[in-house]
Design a protein around this nucleic acid. Structure first.
Length: 570
RNA sequence: CGGGGCGUAGCGCAGUUUGGCUAGCGCGCCUGCCUUGGGAGCAGGAGGUCGGAGGUUCAAAUCCUCUCGCCCCGACCA
């Protein structure tokens, strides 16, 4: 391809809308353009990278005995009603109607449609295990798209679904996908960290996310440097505290006037106590019924854990009105004593001796509150958000934390979809059984952004060879010069004939412009054809990421390029 | 949805407070000359419903009302 004909509109300046480095470079290097908030068009360089990533995915999945299919984007509401998710999914599902007012959605994910497909066509255990995948656009009407393609509304996802006859076999599928993911991301040049994860809207009971670490990440993970335990904070288990606690004698309950003191922070300042002494009392509406959550003042409630622990479908913080009804006081004076609703306590409260809580009375708090003596929770559970400094649940060492972006997630689903949708097969003994399923996603477009986050410098992108839009760019210092043109054309032909993806920058631009564009776009290897060395029959090879340079004779160019690409392609 | 901000040429912005001639600047784009080892120089040129609609006024990018879009923070999520 000749650069003069390549549709790669580079930008000299940073578009105002882009904050993240990957977002900026994707726009500046001409990989994509925005069409609407969270919706992007890919230009030739962008789609070439995406194709590279998808090809790696295909190769690795096919090796793992998976087969590619293609499912529709527009899906009928009926299927979603069968699984119960038409109501469950919420406003991020794009819903639409056809001319007959029939209801459809733009697929945010494809469990329903594939389960229905397999239900219709797969009848016997002899056909299992079955692993089917597609690479398809998905739509989620995100509340707030951001970070370019990292959180967009339309995005490209690879999703795979496994169907097995029993749990043992399904766990093998899970393991095979986990291993395939490890290889896929490694081949893309990405360092990823698998962490235990919550299953969210997809459901199921076992899941890992593949995280790319970085400050730009939207997720928070905790990990144990010692035993390797790593989990999204949404999921990370917290250990109960050593029951010992403080060896204090229980003091007498005492009411104290605290007008206008409604936050833990103010309370600790005024009473000169540590936040860990405060019994923070949060009122939630769980499936529209009020419940109280009691947690140490130095912790935050993990609502995902709460939802799971008390087995409710809908959970939200109660409004001022409800709080007033329940606690007989405005927000900020709730406490566990005398509340007429279930009180769920986090592990962190069990050790609090002579604690401070709201008095359920405007302007008052209570001092020397003690569990079991003054109140008894309905249950003591793991409800808090994990964070650095906590004890690892596996080995007891101290946890560390980091931010990350999820590029892939694997779920063990069990029979969550096959049961309600009645997707059955006949087992060896003639019995009808629901498929035991798993599903596995990779955010393809997001992966591209993550690669840029990990491979760039101040001049632009430094693509790993495996996903580079083109491997090599030839830059003649002046294409108008006969000798340079002849030499550049010659090398171009040689490399093309060798099957190497190469760009010839034949534009009538000054060399600086061509160098800047080459760096910005990030071709792994640049061949400069210039007057300095051409007389002796040499050209320069420059590696984009390491900046190393070497002179090679034109006769050796092909061999050198091949061996360098081979070497840095590892 | 709450809070904050922004819509003026392809990109980045000034002009809006205090209404006033043909709406500006830098980069990019086109033509010519010149130049060619890290975003050159000179000359000429094209490109605008000032996000949209309505209103006030002799006069609106500027004031008022409504509306649409975009960005950031938060709640939500892959």
């Amino acid at each position: 391809m000749r650069a003069s004909q390549l549709y790669a509109p580079t930008l000299r300046e940073v578009p105002a809308e882009a904050e993240l480095i990957s977002h900026q470079y994707m726009l500046r290097a001409g990989l994509m353009r925005k069409s609407a908030s969270g919706i992007y068009s890919y230009l030739p360089l962008g789609i070439r990278v995406l194709h590279k990533i998808m090809e790696i995915i295909r190769e690795e999945l096919d090796k793992a005995d998976a087969q590619e299919i293609l499912l529709p984007i527009v899906q009928p509401a009926e299927l979603w009603e069968e699984s119960g998710r038409w109501n469950e999914y919420g406003p991020e599902m794009f819903r639409l109607q056809d001319r007959h007012q029939r209801h459809f959605c733009l697929g945010p994910t494809h469990e329903e449609i594939i389960t229905a497909l397999v239900r219709a066509d797969v009848r016997s255990y002899r056909q299992l295990p079955l692993r089917l995948y597609q690479i398809q656009n998905k739509y989620r009407d995100e509340i707030r798209p951001r970070f370019g393609v990292i959180r967009s509304r339309e995005f490209i996802m690879k999703d795979l679904y496994s169907f097995d006859r029993d749990e043992v076999s399904a766990q093998e599928s899970y393991r095979a996908m986990y291993d395939a993911y490890t290889r896929i991301f490694a081949r893309c040049g990405l360092k990823t960290h698998p962490v235990e994860a919550d299953t969210g809207a997809i459901g199921g009971d076992q899941s890992h996310e593949f995280m790319v670490l970085g400050d730009a990440g939207e997720d928070l993970i905790v990990f144990c440097p010692d035993c390797g335990y790593a989990a999204n904070v949404e999921r990370a288990e917290c250990a109960p505290f050593d029951s010992a606690g403080e060896q204090e004698t229980l003091a007498e309950l005492e009411e104290i006037a605290t007008p206008d003191v409604t936050t833990v922070e103010e309370l600790t300042r005024i009473l000169k106590i540590a936040p860990g002494r405060v019994l923070k009392t949060m009122i939630y509406l769980a499936d529209e019924k009020p419940v109280a959550v009691l947690i140490g003042g130095d912790y935050d409630v993990n609502e995902i854990k709460l939802k799971r622990a008390i087995q409710c479908n809908q959970l939200e913080l109660a409004g001022a009105q409800t709080i007033r009804e329940v606690t007989k006081a405005p927000v900020g004076f709730a406490g566990p004593i005398g509340l007429g609703i279930p009180v769920y306590a986090d592990y962190s409260v069990e050790r609090i001796v002579n604690g401070v809580s709201g008095a359920n009375k405007e302007g008052y708090h209570l001092r020397n509150v003690n569990i079991y003596r003054d109140y008894t929770p309905a249950a003591i559970l793991d409800l808090r958000e994990a964070r650095a400094g906590e004890k690892c649940v596996r080995c007891g060492k101290v946890l560390d934390q980091a931010r990350g972006t999820e590029v892939g997630q694997v779920f063990y689903l069990g029979t969550k979809y096959s049961m309600p949708i009645k997707a059955h097969f006949v087992d060896q003994d003639g019995q009808e059984m629901p498929f035991v399923m798993g599903c596995y996603g990779i955010g393809v477009s997001r992966t591209m952004a993550a690669i840029i986050e990990q491979h760039h410098d101040e001049d632009g992108i430094c693509w790993p060879v495996s996903v580079a839009p083109f491997a090599v760019i030839i830059v003649p210092v002046s294409y108008k010069d006969d000798e340079q043109r002849t030499a550049a054309d010659g090398i171009y032909k040689i490399l093309q004939d060798a099957g190497i993806e190469v760009i010839l920058d034949d534009r009538d631009e000054r060399p600086g412009v061509k160098f800047k564009d080459a760096d910005l776009i990030g071709y792994p290897l640049r061949i400069t054809v210039g007057p300095k060395h051409l007389k002796e029959g040499y050209v320069e090879l420059k590696l984009r990421s390491s900046h190393t340079q070497l002179l090679v004779s034109i006769d050796d160019v092909k061999d050198q390029v091949e061996s360098i690409l081979d070497r840095i392609g590892e």
